[in-house]
């Protein structure tokens, strides 16, 4: 099959509007507000990256976007329609691998189409294309436990993309991979995104990952989380890691983001949060390295 032939049905990308959303866990006086009056837009056809400290409430927001949970207050709209539950419009790639251990790579990728009874010759062709694209052709008959961490993440990307969701949601998908695999994954993923032009929402705590991938960056406050700042990362695509390191614009964005993250951390630090202290330390180390 030729590389530039993409047997993909065209699907309209979606746009998500989060309006005044709050979410708490726990009862009464034990209640803890995790998301508070949160407002942002995940723009159509763009890759929006959300960055914020660990435990600030990013995964909680993702569960709301996916429709696994409902907000206590406010609304989430996909192309103007309120979200009422999970749907293949909004596919989630999780923080830890959620490949079905009882299915081979190939069967995992085809899970969605089979579940919906939509397997056509085109689907199989597209599955084949994606399998090649994520470099797992030799591993089609392997089970997830036989794949390395990086391969599992790539299989999962393919499994999500075959469903042609209007929006792809990724929750720290490359966390826990070693540095080299991670950088490879960024290029893989950026490439998949650039070819598809689909709306993507990507959550991370890694500033380099955020700057490399993002069209728009949402910088979050600590818990209860809100959007603290939005930065447009107007670095041309396709991007290559080598170019990003030397790009002045990319470095400027990174500095700007770090300054805000640092300020945010200091704020919670002065309120005496242990998490914030760790956060300051982690980001201080990162900026020193940059």
């Amino acid at each position: 099959m030729s590389e530039n032939h993409v047997p993909r049905p065209v699907v309209a990308s979606g746009e998500i509007a989060v309006r005044g959303v709050s979410k708490s866990y726990g009862e009464a006086h034990l209640a803890r507000e995790v998301v508070k009056d949160c407002d942002f837009t995940i723009e159509r056809g763009k890759l929006t990256v959300m960055i914020g400290p660990s435990g600030c409430g990013k995964s909680t927001l993702i569960r709301l976007l996916a429709g696994f949970e409902m907000p206590d207050k406010g609304s989430i709209l996909l192309d103007g329609q309120p979200i009422t539950g999970p749907s293949r419009d909004r596919l989630v790639v999780f923080q830890e691998t959620a490949l079905f251990p009882w299915l081979t790579t190939w069967d995992n990728i085809l899970y969605g189409p089979r579940a919906r009874g939509e397997v056509t010759p085109q689907t199989l062709e597209f599955a084949e294309f994606l399998l090649n694209k994520v470099g797992l052709r030799e591993f089609r008959h392997k089970y997830p436990t036989q794949l390395s961490g990086g391969m599992q993440r790539r299989a999962e990307l393919a499994r999500a993309m075959i469903n042609n969701p209007q929006i792809m949601i990724l929750d720290e998908p490359f966390r826990g991979l070693d540095a080299m695999t991670k950088e490879l994954m960024w290029e893989y993923y950026a490439n998949l995104y650039e070819e598809s032009g689909r709306t993507n929402f990507f959550v991370t705590t890694d500033i380099d990952e955020a700057v490399f991938l993002a069209d728009r960056m949402l910088i979050m406050t600590n818990i209860p989380t809100q959007v603290r700042a939005v930065i447009e990362v107007d670095v041309p695509r396709p991007r290559r890691l080598a170019d990003m390191v030397t790009s002045d614009r990319a470095n400027a964005v990174k500095m700007e983001a770090l300054a805000i993250l640092h300020e945010e951390a200091m704020k919670s630090f002065s309120r005496g949060s242990k998490a914030a202290a760790d956060f300051v330390e982690a980001y201080a180390r990162r900026s020193a390295k940059a």
């Binding site: 429709g67 696994f68 989630v92 999780f94 959620a98």
Partner: peptide, 13 residues
Amino acid sequence: DVRFFQAAQSMGS
């Protein structure tokens, strides 16, 4: 794992 249910649901199961 609840993630398997969530993954299946979001793929339209």
